[in-house]
């Protein structure tokens, strides 16, 4: 019954958790509601009344959502927060304008995450290196080379900003989200490849800059050696990677299509009665 699905979706959709976990919640709550509905149908005078009683028995949707959210491990809550990664649209506003503002917001979120992770890396490195010799010792050189780090973060910001803006301009963003429209397979492949290229570009920059900071090598020479390394990879490795990415995308799109047909296409109301 569609009304039961809509009620479940209203509870589960805004929860910050992996799709796998949310699907588990969806299926289990739906099974529960269907059984409760069958029970209520036996005594109620109409389907409408049975539906009302069954949903009432489940409890207040907002309170239940909060309890379900609290049962999600914190690491998953952080990983699936919508602001930096935007793997899913905002809770209900799936048609929110994106454009340069959205791209800037995502790029800033990703850079902020990198700053935190790289700061952690430098702190750990600093802590272990003097005594154990497990990592190259960092001293005042890090401070001297901070401008290089700033350049790295700047490059990362530009790479992700440009990628997401491009996504928006040519409609690839829809291909990444099963919720908005049904994407074509070609668009989905293009969008996955663009993201991989943006991430790869940043990784090369990060390797070059990290090596120059940690071991004092010249960025220019490191960049040349990285490019030489890439060129020395045999063609069948690239071909294999391409096949893998195509198969992976096909599989993902198949799952997303099913997900969209079962849950994503449902029009739900938020707690204030707004439809999306």
């Amino acid at each position: 019954m569609k009304a039961l699905r809509i009620h479940v979706e209203r509870i589960v959709r805004p929860i910050r958790a992996s799709v796998l976990r949310k699907n588990k919640m969806r299926e289990e709550l739906l099974a529960h509601l269907e059984t409760a509905f069958e029970e209520e149908s036996a005594v109620a005078i109409s389907d409408c009344e049975a539906l009302e009683q069954a949903t009432k028995r489940l409890g207040d949707p907002r309170a239940l959502r909060e309890e379900l959210q609290a049962s999600v491990p914190w690491i998953e809550r952080v990983g699936f927060s919508r602001i930096p990664l935007r793997l899913e649209p905002e809770a209900y506003a799936s048609d929110e304008p994106f454009g340069w503002r959205g791209s800037a917001r995502i790029a800033t979120g990703i850079v902020a995450l990198t700053v935190v992770l790289s700061s952690l890396f430098f702190a750990i490195n600093q802590a272990v290196s003097p005594d154990t010799g497990l990592a190259p010792r960092l001293g005042i050189e890090v401070l001297e080379r901070l401008p290089l780090l700033a350049v790295s973060y700047g490059c990362e910001w530009v790479a992700f900003f440009a990628t997401y803006l491009l996504f928006d301009l040519v409609g690839l963003r829809d291909a990444m989200s099963p919720w908005n429209r049904m994407p074509s397979f070609v668009k989905a492949c293009l969008s996955v490849s663009s993201l991989i290229i943006a991430a790869g570009f940043f990784l090369v920059m990060a390797v070059v800059l990290a090596e120059s900071i940690l071991w004092g090598k010249t960025p220019h020479l490191i960049a040349k050696s990285v490019i030489a390394d890439i060129q020395s990879v045999p063609y069948w490795v690239w071909l294999g990677a391409l096949c893998f990415s195509v198969l992976y995308t096909m599989n993902t799109k198949h799952r997303e299509r099913r997900q969209y047909e079962e849950w994503g296409c449902l029009q739900i109301e938020d707690d204030s009665g707004m439809r999306s």
Binding site: H32, R57, G59, L64, L68, A70
Partner: peptide, 11 residues
């Protein structure tokens, strides 16, 4: 409230 059972089960 029947729904409260599921967060407890997940925890």
């Amino acid at each position: 409230k029947e729904g409260s059972l599921y967060p407890a089960l997940y925890r």
